[in-house]
Design a protein around this nucleic acid. Structure first.
Lengths: 198, 198, 198, 198
DNA sequence: AATGAATGAGCATTCATTCAT
DNA sequence: AATGAATGAATGCTCATTCAT
């Protein structure tokens, strides 16, 4: 489908040029279409970008809800599974994840159409809620610290986002291979240990 | 001094418009000067923005090195002190901190003048090193997990950056008061607990 | 064609304002297009100007090579034919010729794109070579002074350029009709007489 | 005197940057003064430039009138002396001569103050008249072709100007040493021969 | 459905020039 | 006499977006 083709092209261009420097013409070239054609499928550049975000957020939600719904896993194992889920989302398309995290700001959301902004808002709530629910069992069972699970969700998500951006910044400072995995693992091990009572 | 006045104006405008949408004219207006005057004090828009970053990074480095050099504090207390230091930096100028974190990307660094980029690089190394050193005692004394202190630094910094950006994103999703403090406290409590052996 | 239309507009504006004072907006107005449209057809203002030069140089080369290739003409007749050729080029578009001569300076060439500069260089070599070759027969046959034909070419070309600019300067000093023809004729008569042995 | 100091600085800067790219600031730097100070001595940039022209024109007039007034020289010798005079003017300050020739256009004259423009007009008339007078004896005595001496003046002056600009253009095309002298000599030899009856 | 052609709205930057001190 | 500081006025150029075909 055309829409897909355009989104794929956009992903590449956003990733390599950044959102600001990616021109509609670049994207059109990459998609082997004319710029005008993009506007048949997307209202404007922002909506195209937001659509990419949505695709990533959908994948994220799916993975995180999967973890949440794993009835057989112990609370600790769920944290480990969450770690894996997050890393998988990252791996699918690191540059896109970075873009989403960097641009999901007050500023950019203001410029989106209300429907799109509200959809992003909904998705965001949804995955944050799902992450929180991953911690619910542990809290209810008294294994984890007695705090609101949403606070744990904030912590884990922030840690993930922060590490991803740090990785990107480091690449900006000096070239190097992607070192997210071991750092993410250690970070979540610390979280996992720290969250437990005693 | 004029330079200060311009930087203050720029801070406000960058914070409310983002870097891309902040025009030199906006900044000049805010500073009650003509656009041409800005160019007497800053080579261009990028350098102006970078100067803001540098100012924040300097404050950050000072605070973090202070914590590191507190000889009397126990390893745990140092983490607590680090938490306070980070929060203070944030409080000094939340919008600037958000800007720095959001824009310190591979992409933007590419566009800065080599000197400026290298100064930012140096500063970044410096505060990451200082944070790492905060954990050294604990590791050496066998109180903390036996990992490289730099990995702990990555974890804490990412957590801080992630929480700050999450806070910003949340404000984009729905207005609300700043809730960084309690979340940061909890997050670092978890880290603090999780990092300790046993 | 649009390209032509723009070049025609540019010619007028460059001629009446000079290159430096001709704004892209002026040219666009004259062409009844928007400034942005010019950039679809020319990379920038310099390239637009250079394209005008090239058009004139092509015509010049064609005419001069024609004279050179007239096998039946005596050396003296060739000089006369060269005179006519130069005057025809001038007549085609006096203002453009003036522009080309005035601006084909070390300084301006420095600012052109390498390809364009090299094309102008090539064209310049080409017509100077062709002019020189016009004198070859006369020299070989011992009718003309025994000097390198290139030196004669320099002389004739300089005389032409100098007269054209003088004409332009005079128009600046006081309005008046174009008097190039008789002066050019006399000048080349003198050359023609002076170049012959005895 | 300050005025001299500024003109010397301007000469250098105009010569190396061209008029268009020479900024008032450049000139002020070169003169070790502040830009504002220049305006105490010259009404604006154009007048400063024109003053340089005038200085050169004065020297030119002096030399050419000198030749004209050499009562003992034969008509032919006078042409030779004129050649020397022109070359000496050129040698005094080649770049300035180029600048004067290139910029003494309809266009630029339009932008000067009426007094300055009229002074340049007067000077121009004066040296053209003096050059013409150099040919008067030869014409009157029937040694030279029976044409208006002014036409000979146009020819010689154009040839000089054209050769000077050609030299400059060639330097733009490829670096090389100054070859004006031999070419000018040949050119004027040709003129000298061609102008004579029989 | 697709696009070639066109453009309106902006924007960073430059620079001759001014003027209070 | 000299200038540091400031700016008004331009200008070349970019790019998201539109629309007739």
């Amino acid at each position: 489908m055309r829409r897909q083709q355009i989104m794929d092209a956009a992903k590449k261009v956003f990733a390599s040029n950044g959102f600001g420097c990616a021109t509609v013409e670049n994207i059109a070239e990459q998609a082997e279409l004319s710029p005008a054609t993009l506007y048949l499928y997307f209202k404007n550049k922002d909506e195209l970008f937001a659509s990419l975000n949505l695709r990533m957020l959908e994948a994220l939600i799916a993975k995180v809800e999967n973890v949440r719904d794993e009835k057989k896993l112990s609370p600790e194992k769920k944290i480990k599974a969450l770690e894996k889920a997050l890393y998988e989302v990252y791996l699918t398309d690191p540059l896109n994840v970075v873009n989403v995290l960097r641009f999901q700001s007050k500023e950019r959301l203001r410029n989106l159409s209300p429907e799109l902004a509200s959809q992003i808002r909904d998705y965001t709530k949804k995955y944050m809620k799902a992450i929180a629910e991953i911690f619910e069992d542990g809290v209810r069972e008294g294994i984890f610290l007695d705090r609101h699970p949403a606070a744990f969700a904030d912590t884990v998500w922030s840690l993930f986002a922060g590490l991803v951006l740090l990785e990107d910044t480091k690449k900006g400072l000096k070239q190097g291979k992607d070192l997210l995995e071991p750092t993410l693992e250690l970070a979540l091990e610390i979280i996992s240990r720290g969250i437990k009572k005693n």
